[in-house]
Write a protein that binds this DNA or RNA. Structure first.
Length: 484
RNA sequence: GACCCCAUCGUCUAGAGGUUAGGACACCACCCUUUCAAGGUGGAGACACGGGUUCGAUCCCCGUUGGGGUCGCCA
């Protein structure tokens, strides 16, 4: 089988998470069956389509690595072809001219609503003698839909879905201004592009019936349909602005990795046994529409971040460093970058996102003097802490600068001071990182390097108490000054 | 409201007539421990309800309830 799939977004907003998943499934399906994945920008709504939205879609797909196999096509450019098909249908008697104006349609709609019915065009001009048409008036071309029987879609995900043709109305194919509607354009384009599998959101399932009618009217082969369940927000309703329907760019800014986003999205509505972390290669060999679930899934940010944490550990150092820099408050200097690189391994299991990672890594990138946060300051201001750090720095001076040796030296120092390891580790951590929580002390010391580490220790030993009320105290009295 | 779709732990899901109903995220406890993580061990936690079919239903059928989607000369 040679599959041709397509992703067909309308450029009226961001590439949101649902669209991204639709694109992913289409991309995967094409890869799986050695076919082609196409991108079609459905920009026939001229008022709402924007250049920025097109750019956002292209950028988003590129970031996710879901590149189309051919340059994107733009639906509006094919309007002449669409009109041609509409006219062919008119010729064939599969469509007719409708002269009903907006006011008449509105009346129909309100009448239907008041009767508690679903609005359907009532076929006013369907069988009317064209001779009665107002001369020179604008007309729309409507599909002459069957009025009896039923239409069945053999959906690859939803199964056979059947609807009575009385539910379907004579939809507009070509507007009064001569532009094609979505319903027409989609069918013509899917046919002309040779699309074999239409994989899209469940919200299009109802459209599939109408589109099937057009395929039928033109005697074109029907593509296979696969309507995948929508992604819902935490409250169970379709993901929308309400939940902050974010573009994929927002996920990048949250510090998420594209491979993590793809992995998470893949598992939303599709599964392969107990597999959770799935590489792209595995996804391509495993993916299939038969394993796509039928029920909608809720978006869970925590799980996404957990998947991201997993991928964060696997990113190689160079890429991670590059990824991290935009998230750092200020770009590190050469030495800072080297410290950061050395500190990477111990940081990896501690961050779920690049934002968190950058936050945790800041102390490596920053240069002296380290400014302690409130809790760290309290530790440093504790009685005897600064003097202890001074002695500790001295004790480390001749130590070989490697984790094991540093640990041995530190333990020996604690023993000589007759205190527990924590009593020296905690203030040292505060001096070294400015925080009370950090990677292990010895990892930090090693990554910082001898000069920087001893410098930071002595900076803290030499500085004055940093409590909220900073008074200048006579030297020697500092130990009695309580930080409160 | 009409039409269509859906229904297993809080969430994502495995399961395709017989299972102690499995895994993941989150949660709780313990272990490890210089802090925070990570890791390890353990725990709590689900088949919406009612009828069928069957020797036997999470699984098949019907209904109920609940949730969702669609009802444009938007896409």
């Amino acid at each position: 089988m040679t599959a041709v799939t397509r992703f067909a977004p309308s450029p009226t907003g961001l590439l949101h998470i649902g669209g991204a998943r639709t694109a992913l499934f289409n991309w995967l399906f094409a890869r799986r069956y050695g076919g082609r994945f196409l991108l079609r920008i459905e920009d026939t709504d001229r008022r709402r389509s924007t250049e920025e939205a097109v750019a956002a879609i292209l950028d988003g797909l590129a970031w996710l690595g879901l590149d189309p196999d051919e340059p994107p096509s733009y639906q509006f450019e094919r309007r002449a072809r669409h009109a041609e098909v509409a006219n062919a249908m008119l010729e064939a008697g599969a469509a007719y001219r409708c002269y009903a104006g907006p006011k008449e349609l509105e009346a129909m709609r309100t009448a239907a609503t008041s009767r508690g019915e679903r609005f359907r065009y009532d076929g006013l001009w369907r069988d009317r003698d064209p001779a009665e048409a107002p001369v020179g008036a604008a007309f729309a071309i409507r599909l002459k839909a069957p009025r009896a029987g039923e239409t069945i879609i053999h959906d690859l995900v939803q199964g056979d879905v059947c609807v009575a043709n009385t539910e379907l109305d004579d939809m507009v194919l070509l507007r009064a201004d001569g532009t094609p509607t979505y319903m027409l354009s989609v069918v013509v384009d899917d046919h002309d592009m040779g699309v074999t599998h239409v994989i899209r959101g469940d919200d299009h399932l109802n459209n599939a019936f109408r589109q099937a009618l057009v395929f039928e009217a033109m005697d074109w082969p029907l593509p296979a349909f696969a309507h995948i369940p929508l992604i819902h927000g935490p409250d169970g309703a379709k993901l929308s602005k309400r939940h902050g329907a974010l573009g994929v760019a927002a996920y990048r800014e949250m510090g998420l990795l594209p491979e993590a986003v793809c992995n998470y999205l893949l598992r939303l509505g599709w599964s392969h046994g107990d597999a959770e972390i799935i590489s792209t290669e595995e996804a391509i060999t495993w993916f299939g529409l038969e394993a796509v679930g039928r029920s909608p899934a809720r978006f869970d940010r925590e799980k996404l971040e957990s998947v991201n944490a997993h991928y964060l550990r696997a990113v190689d150092d160079d890429r991670l460093l590059a990824l991290l820099e935009p998230f750092l408050a200020r770009p590190p200097d050469e030495a800072g970058r080297a410290r950061l690189r050395a500190g990477l391994p111990a940081l990896r299991p501690r961050a779920k996102t690049l934002v968190e990672f950058a936050e945790l890594a800041a102390f490596y990138a920053a240069s002296r003097p380290v400014v302690p946060d409130a809790k760290a300051a309290r530790l440093l201001d504790a009685k005897g802490a600064r003097a202890l750090l001074a002695r500790y720095a001295t004790a480390l001076e001749d130590t070989a600068w490697a984790e094991a040796a540093l640990e041995a030296a530190t333990r020996a120092f604690a023993t000589s001071e007759d205190i527990g390891l924590g009593r020296v580790a905690q203030p040292a951590r505060a001096a070294l990182t400015g925080r009370t929580a950090s990677p292990g002390l010895f990892e930090v010391l090693a990554a910082l390097g001898r000069e920087e580490a001893l410098g930071r220790l002595r900076d803290a030993a030499d500085s004055l108490p940093t409590g909220p009320r900073r008074h200048i105290v006579p030297s020697g009295a500092s130990e009695r000054t309580k930080a409160r």
